[in-house]
Design a protein around this nucleic acid. Structure first.
Lengths: 322, 322
DNA sequence: TCAAAAGTGTTATCCTTACACCCATGT
DNA sequence: ACATGGGTGTAAGGATAACACTTTTGA
């Protein structure tokens, strides 16, 4: 066993709702691109990686993290492109973390270099709340189909599905439907097809057409980690009540629905959503109501923590279509 | 950033069917306990950890791995208990891998030190194929309930669910049903309650009653990694056709059903299972039939690889009950 | 002819989806 | 009164779960 000087980096996708927008904390990267907040893991100081992560995030940002979940560990040599191959090597562990932000926390964050921005700035094609994004048909799909047709049956496609089949499933074309959980597949296909700035930067031979409105780039593979986090969170919502980690203590049903819609990136059906919430006994009325929005006042609810003890998989299994 | 000499270990839960038993490859550990096969990750040699894993497994065992999936990364200092706190530290990455074994491969494996054994040797309470295991009511549940009652409302239970609620959900008592996917929760509760040999070995203060038929112990936290792998595989089967990685090219529907039952550790309903397989168009008849079992000959089928291109989540969504 | 396993047909129930209308408040 | 968002009832269709019997072979 050759002993390598390996360093472990922890990268966090820290999600919070700001207004109606699902946002992530971003920091300036060492190049000009944005980066995810990250820190080292020192096994001398912290018993587990999650404890280490919580500590440096809370120290540097004063945010209290709620739900935290490990996403994936990348050991790629290509990740950190040091020219030549000696020197330390990196392994990075991605984490998803949910939190709440008060407006008064923002200036302190900004002084520390961080800032919350909509996650759809980075992956704009994932936002279907106002309908199917035009960029898909105008730019992404034509380009990616062309790429897929070119590499189908090439060495690249030797193992597993043909690229064009992967495109069909990931992007919901030709009879498949758009599945909001396939965020990572879509990002990876776009990367392979040279449709995001990162593929050009990484010098992939396929990167020949990176131009177009394909979102803000990030350092290293941080946008990939973000895509992983979105996939996981969108999936998780359906069987765990983590959505309440993003909401205030009290909220209206419409706020709950809008938060779900923001995360899923698509509208959901109002009546069915409410029936679902009611049947799952996820919330209880506080008795109070809110007239903040300028129509009929809405009843306020709170999360019924007891469901955790009552039901095996208390999530929001919202249906496919709005 | 303090630079630590950290080593990355890759640990593999390599699953294959032998007869009707789901088996994992086990190797002798450095103490007397069994261990999972593992190897170092050297970023100089391998571009990604998965490539590294495939290579040393294939070199050492001559097994060709099919589906491979990363499970979880542990960075615990407590894992490798070097007395004192200097020296190298370890991070271990767990993997699930599926393969097929021919009988003629077994002697070579054994010479290399490895051997396949039923995964239920390690987690016997997970096997409900012949009905609810008696050990649950005779030993596990009384002991674990006693532990839960004792630590409820103690510091241990400060965050999240009360231990007794966790027990209720994980073990399906008091109105909950047994969910075959909760393998990891059950193992972790048993570890905390001191019901497996590992908790005694690790010197946990709760480890006071480790005695009883709670399966073969493993080195370090390998049994925990196995539990993670079982959870993931049982969940995965429901939406990805990975079961076919464990079956021969041609198989009867009963063999398919028995393989699913072995992995899930419970019987499934025959007619509904067949209807499910048919509706999902997962298999096609080869035309041939097999009279190996001593009754009416069974038609042989093969996996229809095309489903991968046709359906978004082609798995075996078998129902809850037999 | 009987044991052993393969293979099928039907129904009740629940869940999902889709539909459109009434209600309470502020301006 | 009207605009704005809050809030509900109902029915069709499909999926799930439960039921028991017939068929084909080898011994």
């Amino acid at each position: 066993m050759t002993k390598q000087a390996i360093e472990i980096g922890l990268h966090a996708v820290i999600v919070a709702m700001i207004g109606n927008e699902p946002c992530i904390l971003r920091v300036p990267g060492s190049s000009s691109a944005d980066a995810l907040p990250s820190g080292p893991f020192d096994p001398l100081q912290h018993r587990t990686m999650e404890i280490g992560l919580r500590q440096w995030v809370e120290e540097q940002t004063a945010l209290r993290l709620g739900y935290v979940e490990q996403l994936y560990t990348f050991g790629d040599r290509g990740r950190q492109r040091t020219p030549g191959d000696s020197g330390p090597h990196f392994v990075s562990v991605g984490y998803l973390a949910l939190t709440r932000v008060q407006p008064e926390q923002m200036p302190a964050l900004r002084r520390a270099g961080g800032e919350f921005g909509s996650w759809y700035d980075f992956l704009p094609w994932e936002d279907w709340r106002a309908g199917r994004p035009a960029m898909l048909d105008e730019f992404v799909l034509p380009a990616i189909r062309q790429w897929a047709a070119r590499v189908d049956r090439s060495a690249y496609a030797s193992r597993g599905l043909q690229p064009s089949a992967r495109v069909r499933i990931a992007f919901g074309t030709d009879g498949s439907h758009w599945d909001e959980e396939h965020v990572l597949d879509r990002y990876e296909l776009m990367y392979s097809a040279g449709l995001v700035a990162e593929s050009v930067r990484d010098g992939r031979y396929d990167a020949i057409r990176a131009a177009g409105p394909t979102g803000t780039a990030m350092e290293h593979d941080h946008r990939r980690i973000l895509a992983t986090a979105m996939s996981r969170l969108r999936a998780k919502l359906k069987y765990r009540p983590v959505i309440f980690e993003l909401l205030p203590e009290e909220f209206t049903l419409t706020e709950l629905q809008q938060t779900v819609e923001s995360i899923f990136g698509r509208p959901v059906h109002k009546q069915n959503f409410r029936r679902l919430v009611e049947k799952a006994q996820l919330v209880e009325p506080t008795g109070a109501s809110s007239n903040a929005t300028g129509g009929r006042p809405a009843a306020l609810f709170r999360f019924r923590r007891e469901v955790l003890e009552e039901r095996p998989a208390p999530g929001l299994r919202v249906g496919r279509r709005a």
